[in-house]
């Protein structure tokens, strides 16, 4: 049986888990292609105009999988991975949105309810509904979830050792090379904040990671930092945000600003993102207080590359000239 897994949204965080899980169940895993113009165009065409671009892209990936003749498309319902916190409503309603909003998917959405107390979502009870749909025993689900969980932890360990999620993905599948450590360049370093699907989807963000590399800029992302450390950095708030990944970004942002270990912070946000309207403001305030420069890069399906390039260059120039002057 062919299970399609969209390479969008939280797949940049949980992909290695889900892929391994289905493989362990003896399924053929079919991944959608990397986001490209066709996928975005299809997603934009099939979604309501007001919705944010990451969801439009996800829809494009689902359509891409349909073309590949899969039996099911896996669309989890992400509910919570931390007590008292939830996901953006679009994540919680995603399977329903796809099932009822797109033609030809009524019987093809394979979903499950993911509720967990930590980032580790390997508790088998999350996946029993998949067993029911596919006619697979509880024991098999239990075993597959365990193997997948271990695989995912390896992936996360690479990630937390300073590799990007994309590099970590390759490493955990035995591709890619380990890089020499401690080769801290004398250049500048920035904190790159954004949800995994904005930071690691090189199409929608116009390949910002490579643009930064070309400018000799080192960067650190939230997923490279240990979950507990992210949490510690927002401990002093009277009330945290409702959304777990927004809290992670906030924790990372606070760390970047307060530890003074970066020269500047860039926040990549999708146009119209509700949670980011809170997050962005909180980061702005922190930037004012710590005097570490902060820039928001807003992306949507119309983003012009020139504009983005100019902004990134100008920001990096500013940091470089500032550093030069300080020495």
């Amino acid at each position: 049986m062919k299970i399609g897994v969209p390479k969008a949204l939280l797949n940049f965080y949980y992909g290695p888990f889900w892929e391994t899980f289905f493989e362990e169940l003896g399924m053929e895993v079919v991944l959608s292609e990397d986001t490209n113009k066709e996928i975005i165009d299809a997603g934009v065409r099939e979604s309501v105009p007001e919705i944010c671009v990451p969801i439009k892209i996800f829809i494009g990936h689902v359509l891409n999988l349909l073309e590949k003749d899969v039996d099911y498309v896996f669309i989890p319902r992400m509910v919570s991975i931390n007590e008292g916190e939830i996901f953006c409503p679009k994540f919680m309603g995603l399977p329903d949105m796809i099932r009822h909003g797109l033609e030809g998917l009524e019987d093809k959405v394979l979903t499950c309810h993911i509720k967990s107390e930590s980032d580790d979502i390997s508790d088998y009870s999350n996946y029993l509904s998949i067993g029911n749909t596919l006619g697979i025993s509880k024991e098999k689900i239990k075993k597959a979830a365990k193997v997948a969980g271990e695989h995912w932890k390896k992936f996360r360990n690479y990630n937390k050792n300073g590799y990007t999620a994309l590099e970590s993905y390759n490493l955990v599948y035995g591709k890619g090379k380990l890089k020499g450590r401690n080769n801290r360049k004398k250049g500048i370093k920035i904190g790159l904040l954004g949800y995994v699907y904005n930071v690691y989807d090189s199409f929608v963000n116009m390949d910002i990671l490579n643009k930064l590399k070309e400018l000799n800029v080192e960067f650190i992302t939230f997923d490279m930092i240990d979950e507990d450390e992210l949490r510690n950095n927002i401990d002093d708030m009277d009330k945290v945000l409702f959304w777990t990944f927004s809290n992670k970004l906030l924790g990372a942002g606070y760390k970047f600003f307060r530890d003074m270990e970066v020269d500047g912070v860039i926040h990549i946000t999708a146009f119209g993102c509700g949670p980011d309207s809170f997050l962005g403001k909180l980061l702005e305030i922190e930037s004012d207080e710590t005097q570490i420069p902060f820039m928001t890069l807003r992306i949507d399906e119309h983003t012009g590359e020139n504009h983005l390039q100019t902004r990134i260059e100008a920001f990096v120039d500013m940091l470089k000239r500032k550093k030069l002057k300080a020495i």
């Binding site: 119309h302 012009g304 504009h307 100019t310 120039d317 500013m318 000239r321 500032k322 002057k325």
Partner: peptide, 13 residues
């Protein structure tokens, strides 16, 4: 500030 760019904004679209 002190002849350094400390912040900027551009019109978007």
């Amino acid at each position: 500030k002190d002849q350094m760019v400390i912040d900027f904004a551009m019109n978007t679209v």
